[in-house]
Design a protein around this nucleic acid. Structure first.
Lengths: 211, 211
DNA sequence: TTTTGTGAAGTTTTTCACAGCG
DNA sequence: CGCTGTGAAAAACTTCACAAAA
């Protein structure tokens, strides 16, 4: 199936909202309500949901639990992804301790850092290796996903080591700056400083287009 | 001037790259090179840069320092933005200590938290108040930007308090879940968990569209 | 009647392709 | 010649508007 990136991003939000609605005891919800709650147009919500089959009831709306299960199915993983994280500083620790990151879809298999106070022991229940061991550990444990939470100057080096492992297939980069990777490896970048710059730009230019 | 959001996002990246190129002693750079280094098409780079006037030299390329200054000018702020951050946990601390966040464009004027071990004292040189003081402190210090690094359940409450201050104009939300705000207030959301979900989705569906 | 599902229309963003200038 | 700047074309994404179903 052919699904666009923005749709997947919204699907994650629909899922969270539906979990909340379920907890609050709602049985049914309309595209209009979903849109109002998340800030999208109702037609956008319907279009997104329609890509995956007819799931609503005309004249009624969407059955909360059924729709939720449906989206879970769409977003479901064929397996539990093995994940490693490079950089166990404040940012890395924040993610590690964030309950939202402790999803059943992923399992943290390894941490990497350069700081000898961190390497060689478990942090939050996960063993931390020196970053030079990225290739061997990722290869041995068949870790396909790397989360980069290292300082910008170390990012490319870590990715290169991960690529050398031959197991790497996807990267979530929380570091600023771009990465050079073979095209079969997917990279999602999250650049908080760039987002702040964007916010400031549009704050000074109220007439500019705002997406 | 009318500039699209994606262009501004790329402009921030061009800026960083040019700083690096400058340090490395490059004098001139072509749109092709910029594109290769950042993963964009050369035509995209040229289109972006052309929105702000003719800055390159045909047959030669762009003068690194001149282009860099030009982009700095485009992204420049009319003032130093006063910023507050709610939530001084691992995520908040990570941002606070990140040198990239210590930009001359912004000044952290206040921190807010609910933990009595943090409130009432300075953290990293900035005073931390109890979150109930958001309206009075933001109002008094005329703080226009709020960075939200609190747990998801506390996000809306903090924003509502900030809105009550009447000074708030923009929010950088690092929390998952949506926020309800008056439409004159700009919100930029950074949702790391959603980005990870997106990555996993496209990893399981290699045939899907990848933006 | 209400609300979905969806082709068609509209808008935004990217890419092409080439004129134009150094 | 080489590389920019830019209209025009293409692609991607969103919104409209209405037929169809409950």
């Amino acid at each position: 199936m052919r699904v666009a990136e923005p749709t997947i991003e919204r699907l994650v939000q629909y899922h969270r909202l539906l979990e909340t609605l379920k907890d609050e005891g709602h049985r049914v919800v309309s595209s209009q309500q979903i849109g109002d709650l998340l800030g999208f147009k109702a037609s956008q919500v319907r279009k997104d949901l329609s890509y995956f089959g007819e799931i609503g009831k005309r004249g009624v709306g969407y059955h909360v639990e059924r729709l939720c299960d449906h989206i879970v199915e769409i977003l479901s993983s064929p397996k539990i992804w093995r994940i490693a994280m490079a950089g166990v500083g404040n940012m890395g620790t924040a993610l590690l301790l964030n309950p939202a990151f402790r999803s059943p879809k992923v399992r943290f298999e390894a941490l990497f850092d350069i700081d000898p106070r961190k390497t060689g022991r478990d942090i939050s229940g996960i063993h931390c290796w020196h970053f030079t061991e990225i290739p061997s550990v990722m290869s041995e444990k068949e870790i396909e996903v790397l989360i980069l939470a290292v300082p910008a100057h170390a990012a490319q080096r870590c990715v290169d080591l991960a690529i050398a492992s031959k197991a790497l297939r996807g990267v979530l980069a929380l570091t600023q700056g771009s990465l050079v990777v073979p095209e079969e490896i997917l990279v999602v970048r999250v650049d908080i400083m760039a987002e702040l710059e964007k916010l400031l730009f549009f704050m000074k230019q109220p007439e500019a287009v705002w997406g």
